[in-house]
Design a binder for these strands. Structure first.
Lengths: 205, 205
DNA sequence: GTCTATAAAAGGATAGAC
DNA sequence: GTCTATCCTTTTATAGAC
Protein backbone atom coordinates (compact mmCIF):
# COMPACT_ATOMS: atom_id res chain seq x y z
CA UNK A 1 0.00 0.00 0.00
CA UNK A 2 2.67 2.42 0.97
CA UNK A 3 5.03 1.59 -1.89
CA UNK A 4 2.10 1.72 -4.32
CA UNK A 5 1.38 5.17 -3.07
CA UNK A 6 4.96 6.23 -3.47
CA UNK A 7 5.02 5.02 -7.05
CA UNK A 8 1.74 6.72 -7.82
CA UNK A 9 2.89 10.04 -6.45
CA UNK A 10 6.17 9.76 -8.28
CA UNK A 11 4.34 9.03 -11.50
CA UNK A 12 2.05 11.97 -11.07
CA UNK A 13 4.96 14.21 -10.35
CA UNK A 14 6.65 12.93 -13.44
CA UNK A 15 3.60 13.79 -15.51
CA UNK A 16 3.47 17.20 -13.93
CA UNK A 17 7.11 17.79 -14.68
CA UNK A 18 6.66 16.66 -18.26
CA UNK A 19 3.80 19.06 -18.75
CA UNK A 20 5.71 21.94 -17.25
CA UNK A 21 8.60 21.12 -19.54
CA UNK A 22 6.25 21.24 -22.52
CA UNK A 23 4.94 24.60 -21.36
CA UNK A 24 8.41 26.01 -20.96
CA UNK A 25 9.51 24.74 -24.34
CA UNK A 26 6.57 26.55 -25.95
CA UNK A 27 7.19 29.72 -23.99
CA UNK A 28 10.84 29.57 -24.91
CA UNK A 29 10.05 29.33 -28.60
CA UNK A 30 7.46 32.10 -28.51
CA UNK A 31 9.81 34.38 -26.58
CA UNK A 32 12.44 33.79 -29.26
CA UNK A 33 9.95 34.39 -32.06
CA UNK A 34 8.18 37.52 -30.90
CA UNK A 35 9.47 38.65 -27.53
CA UNK A 36 7.73 38.98 -24.20
CA UNK A 37 5.28 41.77 -24.97
CA UNK A 38 3.98 40.25 -28.18
CA UNK A 39 3.57 36.79 -26.68
CA UNK A 40 0.12 36.18 -25.20
CA UNK A 41 -0.87 33.67 -22.55
CA UNK A 42 -3.77 32.48 -24.72
CA UNK A 43 -1.26 31.65 -27.41
CA UNK A 44 0.87 29.66 -25.00
CA UNK A 45 -2.12 27.72 -23.71
CA UNK A 46 -3.38 26.97 -27.21
CA UNK A 47 0.04 25.83 -28.35
CA UNK A 48 0.57 23.56 -25.36
CA UNK A 49 -2.99 22.29 -25.74
CA UNK A 50 -4.31 23.05 -22.28
CA UNK A 51 -6.72 25.60 -20.86
CA UNK A 52 -5.40 28.96 -19.89
CA UNK A 53 -6.59 28.52 -16.32
CA UNK A 54 -4.47 25.40 -16.08
CA UNK A 55 -1.44 27.41 -17.06
CA UNK A 56 -2.06 29.73 -14.16
CA UNK A 57 -2.05 26.74 -11.79
CA UNK A 58 1.53 26.09 -12.85
CA UNK A 59 2.74 29.69 -13.05
CA UNK A 60 1.22 32.62 -11.19
CA UNK A 61 1.72 35.21 -13.93
CA UNK A 62 2.92 35.82 -17.45
CA UNK A 63 6.15 37.21 -16.06
CA UNK A 64 6.83 34.06 -14.06
CA UNK A 65 6.04 32.00 -17.14
CA UNK A 66 8.70 33.85 -19.09
CA UNK A 67 11.12 33.83 -16.19
CA UNK A 68 10.85 30.04 -16.00
CA UNK A 69 11.91 29.83 -19.64
CA UNK A 70 14.82 32.18 -19.05
CA UNK A 71 15.92 30.12 -16.05
CA UNK A 72 15.79 27.04 -18.26
CA UNK A 73 18.09 28.60 -20.82
CA UNK A 74 20.41 29.76 -18.08
CA UNK A 75 20.57 26.23 -16.71
CA UNK A 76 21.39 24.87 -20.15
CA UNK A 77 24.20 27.38 -20.38
CA UNK A 78 25.55 26.34 -16.99
CA UNK A 79 25.44 22.68 -17.99
CA UNK A 80 27.12 23.42 -21.31
CA UNK A 81 29.91 25.32 -19.59
CA UNK A 82 30.43 22.53 -17.06
CA UNK A 83 30.76 19.99 -19.89
CA UNK A 84 33.47 21.89 -21.76
CA UNK A 85 36.74 19.95 -22.21
CA UNK A 86 39.06 20.85 -19.39
CA UNK A 87 42.14 20.91 -21.60
CA UNK A 88 40.85 23.62 -23.94
CA UNK A 89 42.41 27.08 -23.82
CA UNK A 90 40.37 29.93 -22.34
CA UNK A 91 39.93 31.42 -25.80
CA UNK A 92 38.73 28.10 -27.20
CA UNK A 93 36.22 27.81 -24.38
CA UNK A 94 34.93 31.31 -25.00
CA UNK A 95 34.62 30.71 -28.71
CA UNK A 96 32.82 27.42 -28.14
CA UNK A 97 30.29 28.97 -25.79
CA UNK A 98 29.59 31.89 -28.11
CA UNK A 99 29.14 29.54 -31.03
CA UNK A 100 26.68 27.52 -28.98
CA UNK A 101 24.56 30.55 -28.09
CA UNK A 102 24.38 31.51 -31.75
CA UNK A 103 23.32 28.01 -32.72
CA UNK A 104 20.58 28.28 -30.14
CA UNK A 105 19.49 31.60 -31.59
CA UNK A 106 19.44 30.32 -35.15
CA UNK A 107 17.45 27.31 -33.96
CA UNK A 108 14.82 29.67 -32.56
CA UNK A 109 15.51 28.64 -28.99
CA UNK A 110 17.11 31.78 -27.65
CA UNK A 111 14.51 33.97 -25.93
CA UNK A 112 15.24 37.64 -26.55
CA UNK A 113 15.87 39.69 -23.45
CA UNK A 114 13.38 42.40 -22.43
CA UNK A 115 14.57 45.61 -24.02
CA UNK A 116 14.65 47.93 -21.02
CA UNK A 117 11.76 48.73 -18.76
CA UNK A 118 9.75 45.61 -19.33
CA UNK A 119 7.89 44.20 -16.36
CA UNK A 120 9.84 41.05 -17.09
CA UNK A 121 13.10 42.69 -16.10
CA UNK A 122 12.03 43.23 -12.51
CA UNK A 123 10.82 39.65 -12.26
CA UNK A 124 14.12 38.33 -13.58
CA UNK A 125 16.21 40.46 -11.28
CA UNK A 126 14.16 39.23 -8.34
CA UNK A 127 14.56 35.63 -9.48
CA UNK A 128 17.22 33.88 -7.41
CA UNK A 129 17.75 30.99 -9.85
CA UNK A 130 18.18 33.31 -12.79
CA UNK A 131 20.53 35.74 -11.10
CA UNK A 132 22.61 32.98 -9.53
CA UNK A 133 22.92 31.29 -12.91
CA UNK A 134 23.82 34.53 -14.60
CA UNK A 135 26.52 35.22 -12.06
CA UNK A 136 27.96 31.73 -12.26
CA UNK A 137 28.15 31.95 -16.03
CA UNK A 138 29.62 35.43 -15.87
CA UNK A 139 32.25 34.28 -13.39
CA UNK A 140 33.40 31.50 -15.68
CA UNK A 141 33.46 33.65 -18.81
CA UNK A 142 35.09 36.51 -16.93
CA UNK A 143 37.91 34.28 -15.69
CA UNK A 144 38.51 32.94 -19.20
CA UNK A 145 38.50 36.44 -20.64
CA UNK A 146 41.14 37.63 -18.17
CA UNK A 147 43.24 34.54 -18.77
CA UNK A 148 43.02 34.95 -22.53
CA UNK A 149 44.01 38.60 -22.19
CA UNK A 150 46.96 37.66 -19.99
CA UNK A 151 48.09 35.10 -22.59
CA UNK A 152 47.85 37.69 -25.35
CA UNK A 153 45.03 35.83 -27.08
CA UNK A 154 42.45 38.57 -26.51
CA UNK A 155 43.11 42.30 -26.71
CA UNK A 156 44.24 43.25 -23.18
CA UNK A 157 43.37 46.90 -23.80
CA UNK A 158 39.66 46.14 -23.63
CA UNK A 159 37.98 46.12 -20.22
CA UNK A 160 37.00 42.53 -19.45
CA UNK A 161 33.43 43.65 -18.82
CA UNK A 162 33.20 45.09 -22.33
CA UNK A 163 34.41 41.80 -23.76
CA UNK A 164 31.89 39.91 -21.64
CA UNK A 165 28.99 42.05 -22.85
CA UNK A 166 30.18 41.78 -26.42
CA UNK A 167 30.09 37.99 -26.16
CA UNK A 168 26.67 37.99 -24.47
CA UNK A 169 25.35 40.22 -27.24
CA UNK A 170 26.06 37.54 -29.85
CA UNK A 171 23.14 35.61 -28.38
CA UNK A 172 20.74 38.28 -29.60
CA UNK A 173 22.63 39.53 -32.62
CA UNK A 174 20.17 40.60 -35.35
CA UNK A 175 22.88 39.96 -37.94
CA UNK A 176 22.12 36.26 -37.57
CA UNK A 177 18.48 36.60 -38.61
CA UNK A 178 19.29 39.19 -41.28
CA UNK A 179 21.76 36.85 -42.95
CA UNK A 180 19.36 33.95 -42.54
CA UNK A 181 16.57 35.92 -44.22
CA UNK A 182 18.95 36.72 -47.06
CA UNK A 183 19.10 33.03 -47.84
CA UNK A 184 22.62 33.26 -49.26
CA UNK A 185 24.27 31.31 -46.45
CA UNK A 186 23.46 28.26 -44.36
CA UNK A 187 23.49 28.31 -40.58
CA UNK A 188 27.07 27.09 -40.25
CA UNK A 189 28.35 29.73 -42.65
CA UNK A 190 26.41 32.45 -40.87
CA UNK A 191 27.87 31.47 -37.55
CA UNK A 192 31.42 31.47 -38.89
CA UNK A 193 30.88 34.89 -40.42
CA UNK A 194 29.69 36.36 -37.16
CA UNK A 195 32.43 34.57 -35.25
CA UNK A 196 34.90 36.22 -37.59
CA UNK A 197 33.49 39.73 -37.32
CA UNK A 198 33.28 39.29 -33.55
CA UNK A 199 36.82 38.07 -32.87
CA UNK A 200 38.77 39.29 -35.92
CA UNK A 201 36.80 42.50 -36.53
CA UNK A 202 35.82 44.07 -39.83
CA UNK A 203 39.22 45.55 -40.64
CA UNK A 204 41.68 43.69 -42.84
CA UNK A 205 44.47 41.97 -40.91
CA UNK B 1 -7.84 89.56 -48.15
CA UNK B 2 -6.21 86.98 -50.27
CA UNK B 3 -2.73 87.55 -48.91
CA UNK B 4 -4.08 87.56 -45.38
CA UNK B 5 -5.60 84.20 -46.07
CA UNK B 6 -2.36 82.85 -47.42
CA UNK B 7 -0.47 83.97 -44.36
CA UNK B 8 -3.08 82.53 -42.04
CA UNK B 9 -3.04 79.15 -43.73
CA UNK B 10 0.72 79.10 -43.73
CA UNK B 11 0.75 79.88 -40.04
CA UNK B 12 -1.73 77.16 -39.28
CA UNK B 13 0.25 74.71 -41.30
CA UNK B 14 3.33 75.70 -39.41
CA UNK B 15 1.58 75.07 -36.12
CA UNK B 16 0.36 71.74 -37.43
CA UNK B 17 3.84 70.79 -38.50
CA UNK B 18 5.28 71.81 -35.15
CA UNK B 19 2.77 69.64 -33.33
CA UNK B 20 3.44 66.68 -35.55
CA UNK B 21 7.13 67.14 -34.94
CA UNK B 22 6.50 67.10 -31.20
CA UNK B 23 4.46 63.93 -31.57
CA UNK B 24 7.16 62.23 -33.58
CA UNK B 25 9.85 63.24 -31.13
CA UNK B 26 7.86 61.64 -28.32
CA UNK B 27 7.15 58.51 -30.33
CA UNK B 28 10.81 58.30 -31.25
CA UNK B 29 11.89 58.45 -27.65
CA UNK B 30 9.32 55.93 -26.47
CA UNK B 31 10.24 53.55 -29.27
CA UNK B 32 13.85 53.82 -28.18
CA UNK B 33 12.96 53.30 -24.54
CA UNK B 34 10.56 50.39 -24.67
CA UNK B 35 9.95 49.27 -28.22
CA UNK B 36 6.82 49.25 -30.33
CA UNK B 37 4.78 46.64 -28.48
CA UNK B 38 5.33 48.15 -25.05
CA UNK B 39 4.61 51.68 -26.20
CA UNK B 40 0.94 52.65 -25.81
CA UNK B 41 -0.95 55.31 -27.68
CA UNK B 42 -2.35 56.65 -24.41
CA UNK B 43 1.19 57.14 -23.26
CA UNK B 44 2.12 59.05 -26.39
CA UNK B 45 -0.91 61.30 -26.10
CA UNK B 46 -0.27 61.99 -22.42
CA UNK B 47 3.38 62.78 -23.07
CA UNK B 48 2.63 65.14 -25.94
CA UNK B 49 -0.16 66.69 -23.90
CA UNK B 50 -3.04 66.20 -26.32
CA UNK B 51 -6.07 63.93 -26.39
CA UNK B 52 -5.73 60.49 -27.89
CA UNK B 53 -8.42 61.28 -30.45
CA UNK B 54 -6.34 64.20 -31.65
CA UNK B 55 -3.43 61.89 -32.25
CA UNK B 56 -5.60 59.82 -34.52
CA UNK B 57 -6.41 62.90 -36.59
CA UNK B 58 -2.71 63.16 -37.39
CA UNK B 59 -1.92 59.47 -37.79
CA UNK B 60 -4.42 56.75 -38.69
CA UNK B 61 -2.95 54.01 -36.52
CA UNK B 62 -0.29 53.13 -33.97
CA UNK B 63 1.73 51.50 -36.74
CA UNK B 64 1.68 54.67 -38.85
CA UNK B 65 2.68 56.64 -35.80
CA UNK B 66 5.74 54.49 -35.31
CA UNK B 67 6.48 54.40 -39.03
CA UNK B 68 6.54 58.19 -39.11
CA UNK B 69 9.22 58.15 -36.41
CA UNK B 70 11.24 55.57 -38.31
CA UNK B 71 10.99 57.63 -41.48
CA UNK B 72 12.22 60.61 -39.53
CA UNK B 73 15.30 58.75 -38.35
CA UNK B 74 15.92 57.47 -41.86
CA UNK B 75 15.77 61.01 -43.18
CA UNK B 76 18.25 62.15 -40.56
CA UNK B 77 20.58 59.39 -41.68
CA UNK B 78 20.24 60.39 -45.32
CA UNK B 79 21.00 64.01 -44.45
CA UNK B 80 23.96 62.99 -42.34
CA UNK B 81 25.39 60.88 -45.12
CA UNK B 82 24.94 63.67 -47.64
CA UNK B 83 26.83 66.08 -45.39
CA UNK B 84 29.88 63.85 -44.99
CA UNK B 85 33.16 65.42 -46.17
CA UNK B 86 33.75 64.37 -49.75
CA UNK B 87 37.48 63.91 -49.27
CA UNK B 88 37.18 61.30 -46.54
CA UNK B 89 38.14 57.72 -47.30
CA UNK B 90 35.35 55.13 -47.58
CA UNK B 91 36.45 53.58 -44.30
CA UNK B 92 36.42 56.95 -42.57
CA UNK B 93 32.92 57.59 -43.86
CA UNK B 94 31.71 54.23 -42.63
CA UNK B 95 33.27 54.75 -39.22
CA UNK B 96 31.77 58.22 -38.95
CA UNK B 97 28.27 57.02 -39.77
CA UNK B 98 28.47 54.10 -37.34
CA UNK B 99 29.68 56.40 -34.62
CA UNK B 100 26.79 58.71 -35.30
CA UNK B 101 24.19 55.95 -35.00
CA UNK B 102 25.67 54.90 -31.68
CA UNK B 103 25.57 58.46 -30.40
CA UNK B 104 21.90 58.53 -31.36
CA UNK B 105 21.31 55.29 -29.51
CA UNK B 106 23.09 56.48 -26.37
CA UNK B 107 21.07 59.69 -26.53
CA UNK B 108 17.88 57.61 -26.48
CA UNK B 109 16.90 58.69 -29.97
CA UNK B 110 17.35 55.46 -31.86
CA UNK B 111 14.06 53.56 -32.09
CA UNK B 112 14.62 49.82 -31.80
CA UNK B 113 13.49 47.82 -34.79
CA UNK B 114 10.54 45.41 -34.46
CA UNK B 115 12.01 42.04 -33.59
CA UNK B 116 10.39 39.81 -36.20
CA UNK B 117 6.71 39.36 -36.77
CA UNK B 118 5.56 42.66 -35.45
CA UNK B 119 2.67 44.35 -37.20
CA UNK B 120 5.05 47.29 -37.55
CA UNK B 121 7.25 45.36 -39.95
CA UNK B 122 4.57 45.08 -42.60
CA UNK B 123 3.75 48.77 -42.28
CA UNK B 124 7.40 49.72 -42.69
CA UNK B 125 7.91 47.48 -45.69
CA UNK B 126 4.84 49.01 -47.30
CA UNK B 127 6.09 52.52 -46.56
CA UNK B 128 7.66 54.07 -49.63
CA UNK B 129 9.57 56.81 -47.81
CA UNK B 130 11.08 54.35 -45.38
CA UNK B 131 12.07 51.76 -47.95
CA UNK B 132 13.47 54.34 -50.37
CA UNK B 133 15.51 55.86 -47.57
CA UNK B 134 16.73 52.47 -46.44
CA UNK B 135 17.82 51.60 -49.94
CA UNK B 136 19.56 54.92 -50.51
CA UNK B 137 21.47 54.55 -47.29
CA UNK B 138 22.33 50.94 -48.06
CA UNK B 139 23.57 51.89 -51.51
CA UNK B 140 25.95 54.46 -50.10
CA UNK B 141 27.24 52.22 -47.33
CA UNK B 142 27.49 49.28 -49.70
CA UNK B 143 29.61 51.23 -52.15
CA UNK B 144 31.93 52.40 -49.39
CA UNK B 145 32.25 48.88 -48.04
CA UNK B 146 33.27 47.49 -51.42
CA UNK B 147 35.70 50.35 -51.98
CA UNK B 148 37.24 49.83 -48.55
CA UNK B 149 37.58 46.13 -49.23
CA UNK B 150 39.21 46.82 -52.59
CA UNK B 151 41.69 49.17 -50.92
CA UNK B 152 42.53 46.56 -48.30
CA UNK B 153 41.06 48.64 -45.50
CA UNK B 154 38.25 46.21 -44.70
CA UNK B 155 38.57 42.43 -44.73
CA UNK B 156 37.77 41.43 -48.35
CA UNK B 157 36.94 37.88 -47.32
CA UNK B 158 33.68 39.03 -45.71
CA UNK B 159 30.60 39.31 -47.92
CA UNK B 160 29.74 43.00 -48.23
CA UNK B 161 26.21 42.28 -47.06
CA UNK B 162 27.53 40.76 -43.85
CA UNK B 163 29.60 43.87 -43.24
CA UNK B 164 26.58 46.07 -43.93
CA UNK B 165 24.39 44.18 -41.46
CA UNK B 166 27.16 44.25 -38.88
CA UNK B 167 27.34 48.03 -39.16
CA UNK B 168 23.57 48.43 -39.02
CA UNK B 169 23.50 46.25 -35.93
CA UNK B 170 25.63 48.78 -34.03
CA UNK B 171 22.58 51.05 -33.99
CA UNK B 172 20.79 48.59 -31.71
CA UNK B 173 23.74 47.07 -29.91
CA UNK B 174 22.77 46.19 -26.32
CA UNK B 175 26.43 46.48 -25.33
CA UNK B 176 25.97 50.25 -25.40
CA UNK B 177 23.25 50.25 -22.75
CA UNK B 178 24.95 47.53 -20.71
CA UNK B 179 28.13 49.55 -20.47
CA UNK B 180 26.14 52.68 -19.74
CA UNK B 181 24.28 50.96 -16.91
CA UNK B 182 27.64 49.84 -15.54
CA UNK B 183 28.52 53.48 -15.01
CA UNK B 184 32.26 52.87 -15.40
CA UNK B 185 32.58 54.73 -18.71
CA UNK B 186 31.19 57.88 -20.24
CA UNK B 187 29.41 57.95 -23.58
CA UNK B 188 32.50 58.80 -25.60
CA UNK B 189 34.49 55.98 -24.04
CA UNK B 190 31.68 53.51 -24.61
CA UNK B 191 31.48 54.43 -28.25
CA UNK B 192 35.21 54.05 -28.74
CA UNK B 193 35.12 50.66 -27.05
CA UNK B 194 32.38 49.40 -29.33
CA UNK B 195 34.06 50.96 -32.35
CA UNK B 196 37.17 49.00 -31.44
CA UNK B 197 35.44 45.66 -30.92
CA UNK B 198 33.52 46.22 -34.14
CA UNK B 199 36.42 47.09 -36.44
CA UNK B 200 39.43 45.60 -34.65
CA UNK B 201 37.70 42.59 -33.11
CA UNK B 202 38.22 41.04 -29.69
CA UNK B 203 41.43 39.20 -30.55
CA UNK B 204 44.79 40.74 -29.84
CA UNK B 205 46.51 42.21 -32.86
C1' DG C 1 -5.08 20.03 -11.87
C1' DT C 2 -8.11 20.53 -15.67
C1' DC C 3 -11.84 22.51 -17.66
C1' DT C 4 -15.68 26.36 -19.00
C1' DA C 5 -17.12 30.67 -18.09
C1' DT C 6 -16.36 35.18 -16.64
C1' DA C 7 -14.47 38.94 -14.52
C1' DA C 8 -11.45 43.03 -14.78
C1' DA C 9 -8.53 45.92 -16.98
C1' DA C 10 -5.80 47.72 -20.77
C1' DG C 11 -5.34 49.36 -25.14
C1' DG C 12 -6.52 50.62 -30.01
C1' DA C 13 -9.80 53.23 -32.27
C1' DT C 14 -14.06 56.24 -33.09
C1' DA C 15 -18.42 59.42 -32.30
C1' DG C 16 -19.92 63.72 -31.90
C1' DA C 17 -19.90 68.30 -29.75
C1' DC C 18 -17.31 72.56 -30.14
C1' DG D 1 -8.25 69.81 -34.99
C1' DT D 2 -9.16 69.34 -30.24
C1' DC D 3 -11.68 67.67 -26.69
C1' DT D 4 -14.69 64.20 -23.67
C1' DA D 5 -16.85 60.14 -23.59
C1' DT D 6 -17.43 55.76 -25.32
C1' DC D 7 -16.94 51.50 -28.03
C1' DC D 8 -14.99 47.11 -28.70
C1' DT D 9 -11.45 43.91 -28.95
C1' DT D 10 -7.68 41.76 -26.77
C1' DT D 11 -5.49 40.09 -22.85
C1' DT D 12 -4.36 39.09 -18.10
C1' DA D 13 -6.24 36.77 -14.49
C1' DT D 14 -9.73 34.22 -11.54
C1' DA D 15 -14.21 31.55 -9.97
C1' DG D 16 -16.13 27.45 -9.38
C1' DA D 17 -17.65 22.92 -11.01
C1' DC D 18 -15.64 18.24 -11.74
Amino acid sequence: MKSSNVVKVSFKEQMLQAREDAIIRTVNRLLAEKGFEAMTVDEVAADVGIAKASLYKHFPSKEDLAAAAMVGVMRRAQDYIKALPADATPLEKLRTVVRWTMELKLAGEMPSLPSQNSTLRATLIANRDYMDGLMEVSDHLGAWIEAAQAHGALNPQLPAIAVLYTLYARACDPVLEFLKMGGQHNDAQIIELVMSTCFDGLNAR
